[in-house]
Amino acid sequence: MHVGLEHYLVVSALLFNLGLLGVIARRNLLVIYMSLELMLNAANLALVSFSRFNNNLNGQVMVFFIITVAAAEVAVGLALIVALYRKKQTAHVEDLTTMKL
């Protein structure tokens, strides 16, 4: 079968859901963050394949912006995690219950 748009979209959907599973099921802050990156990458793959099969480069410019924003987001998020770790000595979400009522 010839590889078309659906193939790429199915891969992207599966990858997005793997990331979602990681965010919900894992308990380590850093692994949760990596799963978030996985979800962002899945969205990028969908955008690039739509751009390719619609003959429109705007989707790839969007992906370029997403990659840049993701880099900034990772820097800020990891700095937050380090600050949190310095205060609480843990990177485990079950130990971070300060905001629980």
Binding site: L30, E37, R52, Q60, F64, A71, I81, V82
Partner: peptide, 30 residues
């Protein structure tokens, strides 16, 4: 394979290079 050559290069440079080094750095730090 989708003919997005520039994005493939950026993906490796920014994600596999910069972002993952940052991740590993923080993991080692913690």
């Amino acid at each position: 394979l989708l003919h997005a050559f520039f994005l493939a290069a950026v993906q490796i440079l920014v994600y596999a290079g910069a972002v993952m080094v940052l991740f590993l750095f923080v993991i080692m730090l913690l």
